[in-house]
Simulated scan of single mutants.
Amino acid sequence: MRFAYYQRLSPAEQRLYRQSDTVTEVPLRAPAMLRPRVDSVREALASGDRRALEEATAALGEALTRKLGVPGVAVEVLETRPSDDAGELHGLYRWAPGQRPRIQVWMRTARRGRVVAFRTFLRTFLHELCHHLDFLWLELSASFHTEGFFQRESSLFRQLLPPAPGPNRREAADTGKWSAGTRRGRR
């Protein structure tokens, strides 16, 4: 399945899109070894301490990029998500020439200022990390939101966080995918 914007891409971009779509997994050797890092992210998020969350998330990012043999990425955790009429921005990946790639993720909702759900935060971080991996692991010249992209994100998520015994409604909703990247509309 191709998302609607595919038709607006140039022929070269369509080739990259199709190439991205063919890779559906990011295999990790011994992902269980990363779970203490994931637990540190969970604990830091629950504490509401932005600095601790940034350190824990950066450590997870460093461990993942090292495992995958790609250069690292700077991680910045910010407080309240920016929002506009289109919704809230959950995360952002930036890479400018001559600069270190950077992931930004927000830890609080725009509307109520509440700390976001752990699974949402982790999935957002992994989403942005997948953009980084598109450039440096898959060596693509662009990173598109393809079905393969979202499958790679889910692949990492499942390896780092095995299914809970009985997810509640909110956790089940947190595992859903969104095709507009890391910006969701208000509900």
Rank of each mutant, 00 (worst) to 15 (best):
L64T: 13
L64N: 01
K67E: 14
K67Y: 13
L68E: 02
L68R: 14
G69A: 12
G69M: 09
V70S: 05
V70L: 09
P71K: 11
G72V: 11
A74W: 07
V75T: 10
E76A: 03
V77N: 02
L78E: 14
E79K: 06
E79T: 07
R81G: 10
R81D: 12
P82K: 15
P82S: 14
P82R: 10
P82I: 15
P82V: 08
P82F: 09
S83I: 02
D85R: 14
G87D: 03
E88K: 02
H90C: 14
H90T: 08
G91N: 05
G91Y: 02
L92K: 07
L92Y: 04
Y93G: 04
W95I: 04
W95S: 06
A96Q: 06
A96Y: 04
P97E: 12
P97K: 01
G98T: 04
G98K: 03
G98S: 13
G98W: 05
Q99V: 08
R102D: 02
I103L: 05
I103W: 05
I103N: 00
Q104C: 09
Q104F: 10
Q104T: 01
V105C: 01
M107V: 00
R108L: 01
T109K: 00
A110M: 00
A110F: 03
R112F: 01
R112T: 01
R112N: 11
R114W: 06
R114Q: 08
V115R: 00
V116W: 00
